[in-house]
């Protein structure tokens, strides 16, 4: 059951200082829904963090309106906010001598009494949060002995223990290796389905965001913010415009980005399936455009996974059969020189 949890009307964000006001972005209109993973994409310095900080009330907005669950964000007290919005940040928090369970327990702070002692209910919620993020085996470990990815999961568990309907994450995957990135993103996606929370995160991981998130916010200096499902944004051309830079092309067929290579020659490639795709990819990287449509004197037959090796049909009619793609590339290298 989707609900529009956050409404943004004509929002301007930036920084006030004594002498001047630095406007980072203005006229932002948008909505964030519950039960969805929304990803905020944009180049460095475009104001993603400022937007997130403004939405979490860490800094005042310059103008416009943010409605959180139908109520203006300025009308919330610190205490109410702490039970409405949970955050996970990029920076590693340097905590020593604190166990994972204790740290997740800190998420209960808005609900605990004067001394911060956890009640039975609090403890149950902590264990549930740990289970949701699937870090049960880490629960007794000290936080400073964890890897970056594990630590981020702990912070997500903390946000879950906070029991807020909304969770903001500021580049939670920034310092993680690829498998951890995927794991965190899938976890977040899974959580939106399982808990119907509103999860909004900023990220630089285009590919993952396009594959996993329900909604994308593209933030750009020139065009402001455009929002939609990744697929709609692809169809409308927003995505390709957005990342229209030298060296990156948006491949409309796959809906993903790839690096734009300058091709020095073309080779006809015959085959299908995985082997076809791999040969195509390897040749592309080496500046050779290879596919079925190309006409060339020399052509490559990839066969399928049942046949071994690849067959290169030379102009003279003779054939050469490299066993690996490495050998195949070596052949084209020699031929070139």
């Amino acid at each position: 059951m989707k609900q529009d949890t956050i409404h943004i009307n004509g929002l301007s964000i930036g920084y006030h200082s004594k002498s001047s006001t630095k406007l980072v972005a203005k006229d932002i209109h948008s909505t964030i829904y519950s039960g969805e993973l929304t990803c905020l994409l944009g180049a460095n310095g475009v104001g993603k963090s400022t937007l997130l900080r403004t939405l979490s009330a860490f800094q005042p907005k310059l103008g416009g309106e943010i409605l959180v669950l139908g109520k203006d964000i300025d009308a919330y007290s610190d205490k109410e906010l702490s039970t409405t919005i949970g955050v996970v940040l990029t920076d590693k928090c340097e905590i020593r001598n604190m166990s994972v369970r204790e740290l997740v327990g800190m998420g209960r702070s808005p609900y605990t009494g004067f001394w911060g002692k956890l009640s039975k209910d609090d403890k149950r919620i902590v264990e549930e949060s740990i289970a949701l993020v699937r870090i049960g085996e880490l629960a007794s470990r000290m936080v400073h002995t964890l890897s970056d990815g594990e630590r981020q999961k702990v912070m997500i568990a903390k946000a879950l223990a906070q029991e807020t309907p909304i969770i903001y994450l500021d580049e939670p995957t920034a310092f993680l290796d690829f498998p951890s990135k995927v794991e965190i993103m899938q976890l977040l996606h899974h959580l939106t389905r399982q808990t119907n929370k509103t999860i909004f995160m900023s990220t630089h991981d285009l590919e993952l965001a396009l594959q996993i998130s329900d909604k994308i916010w593209l933030m750009d200096k020139a065009n402001g913010i455009s929002t939609g499902t990744p697929e709609d944004l692809a169809l409308s051309g927003h995505l390709s415009n957005f990342f229209a830079r030298k060296g990156i092309v948006f491949d409309k067929e796959t809906g993903l980005f790839r690096i734009d290579n300058q091709f020095s020659r073309q080779v006809r490639l015959v085959g299908h399936g995985q082997k076809y795709a791999m040969v195509r990819k390897a040749l592309q990287r080496n500046g050779i455009l290879a596919n079925r449509e190309v006409e060339s004197n020399i052509w490559i037959e990839t066969g399928d996974l049942k046949t071994s090796g690849f067959i290169i049909h030379e102009t003279s009619g003779s054939t050469y059969t490299p066993l690996t793609i490495e050998e195949l590339l070596a052949y084209f290298d020699i031929e070139k020189s």
């Binding site: 205490k79 702490s82 940040l89 905590i95 800190m106 702070s109 004067f114």
Partner: peptide, 17 residues
């Protein structure tokens, strides 16, 4: 309790009220 929250750093502590 205040000092325990401070361990998390300013942003997290603020977010926890």
């Amino acid at each position: 309790k205040t000092m325990n929250l401070m361990l998390l750093g300013d942003s997290y502590a603020r977010n926890l009220g």
